[in-house]
């Protein structure tokens, strides 16, 4: 009886929460944003200006550059003996620099952390991911790496090698 009351109370609270959440309406931009969007996108594609993502790098380029360097250091620390894991960490550093998205970087680094000895810095980084992003469903990041074709891996590794030569 007590349990039933508890369940009913929890359901009521959920309903009230969802009702409250529903009060948040989308603030739409001015209509011309949608009208002009095809033109703006077309112009962006032709002119290839810095995207918001790349603009972001200008502001926190120093930090991200340092992160990339740290990640490359991880790769070095892991050593050539652990080829697969080294490859993962290297790929992650590239993903952070390119268009793959930070979530994938987290995913790959977390996966690398499960199978090999990591530096203290990477352990800290992974702990932060776990705390903040609650990566508990491991199938996600395993799937992320499985999705990459051999050609993509090759491409990533070639780009990293080119970057390493310039550092």
């Amino acid at each position: 009886m007590k349990n039933e009351t508890k369940i009913v109370h929890a359901e009521d609270t959920t309903q009230r929460l969802l009702q409250l959440a529903g009060s948040w309406e989308v603030e739409m931009p001015e209509e011309k944003f949608f009208i002009n969007l095809p033109v703006v996108v077309g112009e962006s594609l032709r002119a290839k200006p810095a995207s918001w993502w790349r603009k972001g790098w200008i502001y926190w380029g120093a930090l991200s550059g340092a992160m990339a360097a740290v990640m490359l250091l991880f790769a070095w620390q892991l050593g050539a003996g652990i080829k697969a894991d080294s490859r993962l960490v290297k790929a992650a550093s590239e993903w952070g620099l390119d268009d793959y998205g930070w979530e994938r970087v987290d995913e790959v680094l977390s996966q690398a952390g499960q199978s090999t000895e990591l530096s203290a810095s990477l352990k800290d980084y992974n702990s932060a991911i776990l705390l903040e992003y609650s990566i508990s469903d491991q199938d996600d990041y395993q799937a992320a790496t499985q999705d990459l074709s051999d050609e993509e891996w090759q491409d990533v590794l070639e780009q990293i090698s080119a970057k390493e030569r310039t550092i």
Partner: peptide, 18 residues
């Protein structure tokens, strides 16, 4: 927020086109 949503929307279609 509106400004980031607009930037993100634009970027989605740029990526999609590519």
């Amino acid at each position: 927020n509106v400004e980031d949503a607009k930037d993100l929307t634009q970027e989605v279609f740029i990526r999609a086109y590519k």
